[in-house]
Design a protein around this nucleic acid. Structure first.
Lengths: 246, 246
DNA sequence: ATGTCATTGTATCAATTTGTGACAATAATA
DNA sequence: TATTATTGTCACAAATTGATACAATGACAT
């Protein structure tokens, strides 16, 4: 039933993996003033999920998360942060897995490791949207960005996972210097403010925002200016990496 | 070599457990104006560790943490919070486990589950010191409170775990209403302030602290007063549980 | 070139929050 | 009844945050 050698490999790797543990990644990007989330769609189904994976026996948890992220985005050395562990006993998704597999023309043998209960470590990643190259995994036919406003509903308990990721993102917005990872190299104050407003879901007074972030001394003002519209040109900024942030 | 039936049971339960995953608990109490941590000392060794355990196949992660906590303190329904997952590949503690076991007159067979790599979910618990009854586990001869100022060094990576727990506790002090769980039913403003100062490791101006916490509207002032010393008697307070906290 | 336009950078003042110190009130003790 | 140490509260200063105003300035239209 499975002739594809990649699939075979995927299948038989389970003895190299730590049992019972998985990783799910909420990968955030920012584009067109919208916060985006990267989702997989399983082949021949309408099932969406957060990218995830497992941990190799000889791999650090952190490295496994980074690897999973790299596999879906082609990006290395990315800001990643644990946000929660999902460990309910209901996290045995055998029925859904059977459905997902049949979408790929596969049948899971009884006792297959995917049919077990998993405890999943949630990581969120913040990436520069323009640099990512979304790559579907072997069971999915698309890996795409979705506006957070209009996310489809997700399988497993991934709705809850995404929700928790978002709440953590919001509450970390100041201390974790989130802009640094979601914005491109250079950006205007306006773009930075839009990111804040989008994550927090509320408007911020322009002049106060400027005062606040300049007061943090994390920005370097570039003397160049941008060619925008019929109005005063804004400065460009970049983050001033003096030992801070990723 | 092992004749003790409890030990036998402990031994053979491993097939009921989720493999590769453990839980470690940093259990905090507050007494004599000191923040305390509950530690186990392994039998016939000088090895100290945070209380920990494993997750039953049919048990929620959260419930497992609560059970482990209850086993060491006899307390149910306690404030518990995840703070981090420790997942380095170096977390295979076979050598130390062999040493620990020989303290209990035991020898681990090759392939015993304890000799594998574990990923550990860290929980911290806040408890009312006066209500806890520390209970050693089957491999330890003491379960005792230690001043955080003078904690002995811990085995495995438990020093790092305790450290992370403390940092999380500090940064959560305001939003998580930590006093509610560490203080007895009723307490004076001074005791509350001492708790804050101890956790944060810094002095707070008395009048500001009072203004701040009263402004939170989480305290109920009890009209009674305490019999203290030769000075004005302070009010007693209790937490005003209007849907907040635990 | 010149004037118009929309947006930007900064200044200003009000409102709120936080830091510091002072002081009267008061249980227990002498 | 006076003394003492601590408590609850207030009053003011300093700092932070919120709201608004306004001059500066690229691009475009004329």
């Amino acid at each position: 039933m499975t002739e594809n050698p990649d699939l075979r490999e995927y299948w038989e790797a389970s003895s190299m993996l730590l049992p019972s543990i998985s990783i799910d990644c909420a990968i955030f990007g920012f584009h067109d003033n919208q916060l985006k989330i990267l989702l997989l769609k399983y082949k021949n189904t309408d099932f969406f999920a957060l990218p995830g994976g497992f941990i190799n026996q000889d791999e650090n948890l952190e490295d496994a998360a980074a690897r999973i992220l790299e596999e879906r985005t082609r990006l290395k050395d990315i800001y990643l942060e644990q946000f929660y562990v999902f460990g309910d006993k209901s996290r045995r998704f055998d029925k859904i897995h059977h459905q997902l597999m049949s979408g790929s023309g596969l049948k899971l043998k009884e006792g297959h490791f995917l049919l077990n209960r998993f405890i999943s470590v949630g990581y969120y990643a913040l990436i520069d949207f323009s640099k990512a190259t979304p790559v579907p995994d072997i069971l999915s036919d698309s890996c795409q960005w979705y506006d957070l406003e209009t996310v489809p509903s997700l399988i497993f308990d991934h709705d809850a996972i995404l929700n928790k990721a978002l709440r953590t993102l919001r509450s970390n917005i100041d201390e974790k210097l989130i802009g640094l990872n979601l914005l491109p190299e250079t950006f205007t104050m306006n773009e930075f403010q839009n990111l804040y407003e989008t994550i927090l879901g509320e408007k911020i007074a322009r002049s106060n925002f400027q005062r606040k972030v300049l007061g943090m001394h994390i920005l370097k003002r570039l003397d160049k200016k941008i060619t925008g519209g019929a109005h005063k040109a804004p400065y460009l900024y970049s983050f001033d990496n003096k030992g801070v942030g990723k």
